[in-house]
Design a protein around this nucleic acid. Structure first.
Length: 355
DNA sequence: CATACGTGGCT
DNA sequence: TAGCCAAGTAT
């Protein structure tokens, strides 16, 4: 199943050792990393930290992840601690980081790992865990367990596309990229090699203006030789995001606000939220409030998701009754601790700064 | 293979 | 500033 059988070539050897030498000097110090060349201590704390960081880092910058990683490891120092945590507490702790299916799967995965008595060590077994796809399974196998695995993320796609001047557009070029990545991935230290590729991609071989003069792989780079490495990898054109409208409702009673938990696995699924009029990325909301009240307009929040723009009108009103459906009265003074995703945190701020 | 799924920072 | 981009996964 894993297609990393390609033999390391002598050119591949030269590239991997050059990059590892560079990494030994320039590796970033990150909370989930051991120093370059040092294997992680053989206890369950490190696979946990590698797994947690890798999931947080999916489509997310290092800068955004750092404070969340610190918070999670402080509250839940081991995978066992996380496995016994109530799901809503984990969701609340994840609030603001985005892609909330990651948090839902994080809990499932932690419970599965705890049930098994620890993380599996092979790439294939890791791949079976919730939230671990091709990339993350390979990354954990290589980084946490020092197994030889070919790790391909967006950085590696960029570096490899340039290194081998792969000019076919993504995603069709993925197979060729993986094959080329396999030829430069060493048998030993493939975890450090993966992290070296990612550091190189984030600091030198950047998307817009690569710093080729500083690159340790400069002399090996066919894309540079061809003249326009910054054009690689070629990507498909983006689709326009639709503009959506919706309304959220701040229902207050006795210094408490009515919060609901969003159902399902769709947008913001599982997250605490203000009740709204049913807007989605596919259609505008109905504009119908959940209860009758003397609604006041608090303003409009603009927010952009991966695949839609949203203009969310925020209305507030008081009630003496309890709205239909499930929900909780949350103390207004502690709204910061409610674990609202960013959209609704903005909405709350809008109300509280005017209301 | 295409689409759904967040957010903040950088250009 | 509007758009692009970041250590992808699930369906």
């Amino acid at each position: 199943m894993p297609c990393h059988t390609a033999r390391v070539t002598s050119m591949g050897d030269a590239i991997s050792s050059t990059l590892l030498d560079w990494y030994d000097k320039h590796a970033r110090a990150l909370p989930w990393r051991s120093p370059p060349g040092e294997a992680l201590p053989d206890d369950d704390a490190w696979p946990y930290r590698v797994w947690l960081s890798e999931v947080m880092l999916q489509q997310t910058t290092v800068a955004a992840v750092k404070p969340y990683f610190e918070k999670f490891t402080r509250i839940w120092p081991s995978v066992k601690d996380l496995a016994t945590a109530p799901e809503h507490e984990v969701m609340a702790a994840w609030a603001g980081l985005g892609y909330y299916s990651r948090a839902r799967n994080l809990v499932k995965c932690a419970r599965e790992v705890a049930r098994r008595g620890g993380f599996p060590k092979t790439e294939a077994e890791l791949r079976e865990l919730p939230g671990l796809g091709t990339y993350t399974a390979a990354a954990i196998a290589a980084i946490a367990f020092d197994s030889r695995a070919v790790v391909v993320d967006a950085n590696v796609e960029r570096v490899v596309s340039r290194l081998f001047n792969i000019t076919d557009p993504l995603p069709a070029s993925r197979k060729a990229i993986k094959e080329k990545a396999a030829t430069v991935t060493p048998e030993d230290r493939s975890g450090d090699f993966a992290q070296a590729m990612m550091d190189l991609g984030s600091s030198i071989c950047t998307s817009k203006s690569p710093r080729c003069l500083l690159c340790p792989l400069q002399v090996n780079c066919e894309g540079l030789r061809a003249g326009e490495p910054e054009r690689l990898p070629v990507k498909p054109p983006k689709k326009a995001k639709p503009e959506r409208k919706g309304t959220a409702y701040w229902i207050e009673r006795d210094e408490h606000v009515w919060l609901v938990t969003r159902e399902g696995t769709g947008m913001l699924g599982g997250m605490r939220a203000l009740p709204d009029d049913g807007w989605s990325a596919r259609e505008d909301g109905s504009g119908k409030p959940p209860i009758a009240a003397d609604w006041q307009d608090a303003g409009t929040v603009r927010h952009t998701f991966t695949h839609a723009h949203l203009a969310l009108t925020v209305k507030y009103g008081r009630t003496v009754s309890v709205p239909d459906g499930k929900g909780d009265w949350w103390p207004v003074s502690e709204i910061e601790a409610a674990g609202l995703p960013t959209l609704f945190a903005k909405a709350a701020r809008t109300v509280l700064s005017r209301g």
